[in-house]
Design a protein around this nucleic acid. Structure first.
Lengths: 245, 245
DNA sequence: CGATCGTTTGACAAGGGTCAAAATGCGTGG
DNA sequence: CCACGCATTTTGACCCTTGTCAAACGATCG
C-alpha cells in the first residue's frame, strides 16, 4: 500500500499493534524498530516487576506472555490480566511510581525498549490509546467477575483474548495460541481449577471450542458471541477509540 | 502552616484531594479555585456520560456521588466504581475518546470544570496520580470480585471507600456518609441485594459496623482490616505513589 | 392515607468450592 | 527408545456459599 506498510509487514507485534491503534508515520515506525534492537530475554516464572517496588523503565513485549497478578495473604492469587506480544508496560506519567501489581513471565519472554513519545505525535497517540485499551480490559474483567457465570466468563475471556491477539497479528477469527495452564485461567476468571476444567469440558463436549497443544479453536464464533453479548472494543484508528474518562 | 494551606483549608474536596496527591503551589490552587466557579448541578439518576458516546469535557465532582456502570443485555448491572467528591472525570489523552462506561449521578451532584495541566507542573502531577489511584481502585475491584467472599468484599469495600473519602476530607477513620442503596452496593460487589443485606446484617449483629441514615460507623477497624488483610493505597505525596505500569 | 421505594425474612435451589485420587502428558536422563 | 518423575488435567462425591422467588415490613412523600 504505502511506504510505511512495507515497514510494517512481517515486523514485530509491537509495530503491528501500535499501527492498529494510531496512524504512525515512518519516523514513528523507525523509532520503534530502532528501540526494538534493545532486547532482553527472561525465562518463565521470573518476576519482572514486584508489587510495591519502584517502577523502572518502560518496555514492550516482543514475544511470550506475561501476567499482572496479586497474591493475597492466604496464598490465593488473582490474575488481573495478561500481557500479550505487542503490549506496553511500565509507562507512567508521575514521579516515583510504584508497581500496583506483580508482573510475572508466564512463558519465556522477550522484551524490548520503546521510544519516548517525544518524536512524532503518532507515538503519543498510540501510547494513549494503548493505555485506554488496557483500561477497557480491566473494566471488562470487572464485569466478567461481577456479573457473568463460569461459562460466560470463559467464553468472554476467549473472545477478548482472541481480539487482543488479532490486534498484534497473532490470531485469526477462530484460532490462536494460549500458552497458559487451566490453573492460571482459573486464577484469572475467579474460579477454581476444577470448576474451570469442568466448564471447559462442557464447551468442548458441545463442540464450541477445542484446546489442544496450547492452540484454541472456536467452532461457532457467532453463537459464542451471542452467548455473552460480546461487543469488541472500539480501537480502530478511524472513528473514536475507547477511553474510560 | 504555609500560605497555600490557608487557601486549602475548608475549601472544596477537589483542592483537598489533589493536594493530598501532589504538592500544589499557589498558582495551581488558584487555578483550581477559579475553575470551580464554573459549576453545574444535576439531579440524581441523570446520566452524565453514556457508554459508547464521545467524551466531552473534563470535570470534577464537587459534591454528591456518581458511579460508572455497565448494563448487560439481560438487564444486569455492574457498578465499576463510584465517583466521590474531589474525583476527576473525562480526562483523556487521545483523540476521539469514547466513554467506556456510563456515568450516572447517584445523588444530586455538583460538578465543576478543572484547569488544564499546562500551568504549574503540580497539577499535571496531581492528575497523573489521580489517574493512577483510580487505576488502583479498579485493580482492587478485580481482586475483590475474583477472590473474596461476600463478607470480605463488603469489608474491603467499606475500608477502601473510607480511605477515598478521607482523601477528600469527608471521613474520619471510623465514620462516613454513604448515600447509596443496598441494591447499588450489591451491583458493585457482584452479589444479589438479598445476600448483600444478609451479609451486612451479620456484620451489624457482630458489632463490626452500623449503618443508620446513610452514615456508616466502623466499630473495630483493626479487626476489619485484619479480616481482609487491608493495605491502604500508597498515594501520599512523599514516597512513591501507586502506578500500575 | 395510599403509593412507592428500600429493607428484611423465609424456604428452597443451584452454581461453584473442596478434598482426594486417578489419569494423562511431557521433559529429562539413562 | 524407554522409563521415571513431575506438572497438569480429569473424575467423583459431597458440601457450602450464594442465588431465587415471594412476601412482609418499614419509611418517606405527595
Amino acid at each position: 500500500m504505502n511506504t510505511s506498510s512495507a515497514l510494517k509487514d512481517n515486523v514485530s507485534p509491537v509495530v503491528t499493534r501500535l499501527s492498529h491503534l494510531a496512524k504512525l508515520d515512518d519516523v514513528d515506525v523507525l523509532a520503534l524498530v530502532e528501540a526494538e534492537r534493545d532486547q532482553r530475554t527472561s525465562s518463565a516464572r521470573r518476576e519482572f516487576v514486584k508489587e510495591g517496588q519502584p517502577l523502572r523503565e518502560r518496555r514492550a513485549l516482543l514475544s511470550g506472555w506475561a501476567c499482572r497478578q496479586r497474591i493475597l495473604l492466604g496464598g490465593q492469587r488473582q490474575i488481573l490480566g495478561f500481557l500479550l506480544p505487542g503490549d506496553l508496560m511500565g509507562i507512567c506519567h508521575h514521579t516515583n511510581p510504584i508497581a500496583m501489581a506483580t508482573v510475572l513471565a508466564v512463558t519465556d519472554v522477550v522484551t524490548c525498549s520503546v521510544p519516548g513519545p517525544d518524536r512524532g505525535s503518532g507515538l503519543r497517540e498510540a501510547y494513549a490509546r494503548s493505555a485506554a485499551f488496557e483500561q477497557h480490559q480491566f473494566l471488562a474483567q470487572i464485569t466478567r467477575l461481577g456479573r457473568l457465570n463460569a461459562r460466560e466468563r470463559l467464553v468472554d475471556w476467549l473472545l477478548e483474548t482472541r481480539d487482543r491477539l488479532m490486534l498484534a497479528g497473532l490470531a485469526t477469527t477462530a484460532q490462536f495460541t494460549v500458552p497458559i495452564t487451566q490453573e492460571m485461567l482459573a486464577d484469572t476468571l475467579g474460579l477454581t481449577p476444577v470448576h474451570t476444567n469442568r466448564t471447559l469440558q462442557a464447551l468442548r463436549r458441545e463442540g464450541f471450542v477445542s484446546w489442544r497443544g496450547g492452540t484454541i479453536s472456536l467452532h461457532d464464533v457467532p453463537r459464542l458471541e451471542a452467548m455473552v453479548s460480546y461487543t469488541p472494543a472500539r480501537v480502530s484508528m478511524d472513528g473514536g477509540a475507547v477511553s474510560y474518562g
